[in-house]
Amino acid sequence: MNRTVKNESYFMSVWNEFRKNRAAVMGMSILFAIIVVAIFADFLAPYDPIEQVYADALQGPSTAHWFGTDEFGRDIFSRVLYGARVSLLVGVVSVAIACVIGSLLGASAGYFGGGYDAVVMRCMDVLLAIPSLLLNLSIVSALGKSVFNMMLAVGVSNIPRYCRIMRASVLQIKNAEYVDAARITGASHMLIIIRHIIPNCLAPIIVQATLSVGSAIIACAGLSFLGVGVPAPTPEWGAMLSNGKDFLRHNAYITIFPGLAIMLTVLSLNLMGDGLRDAFDPKLRR
């Protein structure tokens, strides 16, 4: 018969499926565009994002300033473009830290159970019991001020969410017969977790991760506002939002545009996340 039929590798089949999903591809394109903007902000931005021109302060959107200017006369369009750099990095990296560490901890806790499970979950309870802002502040002040430490702090405070979601899914899946089947053929615990357990628990994690990028950006803005994150003049979406709140009544555009930028980022990640979730689940394939 047809001898050319080859085994598709797992990730190739996921990718082929992902490509068929228009919304997901659109999400990926938007995200890609935002990344390009972040990289080439130097060439795209019409003004210096931190140069203050008091004569132009608080102007509405016009042909000269597409998104208007803030209270220091800085061009909001340029700031939004530059802001993509820090905000995207901060949002994605902190969620990635939380997601990877949380999922692995949760998966191993659910899989091995017993004392290890109890220790991990009690640690998560401790993390959950501390207000996240306080936890973030103490981590950053212990490790020193830097953008990376801020991302780490926001990541760490989000670990329990992923850990708990993952553990709950693993508890359901670890007794499945296909896990026993893998063990009988000699698979190691690590291989079973990575190849069978995590892929089958991925759906809720992907949704949670893509949804929480937005809140991670806002959390970082909060830290920046308190002076432990990104220093003040550096353009950053979250910080722009919180600065703009004083002018919300008469100059709403100051907050609207960075808000739209965050929304667009989260939307694109979300569309991508939904597409990934569907592509990973063969049952949802068309």
Partner: peptide
């Protein structure tokens, strides 16, 4: 219905014992 991983194609399920060993 429970003994095959729903996320692996049947060829990959059958091949798994071979790759593991």
């Amino acid at each position: 219905y429970a003994s095959l991983d729903p996320r692996l194609s049947i060829a990959n399920s059958i091949m798994e014992p071979l790759t593991i060993n």
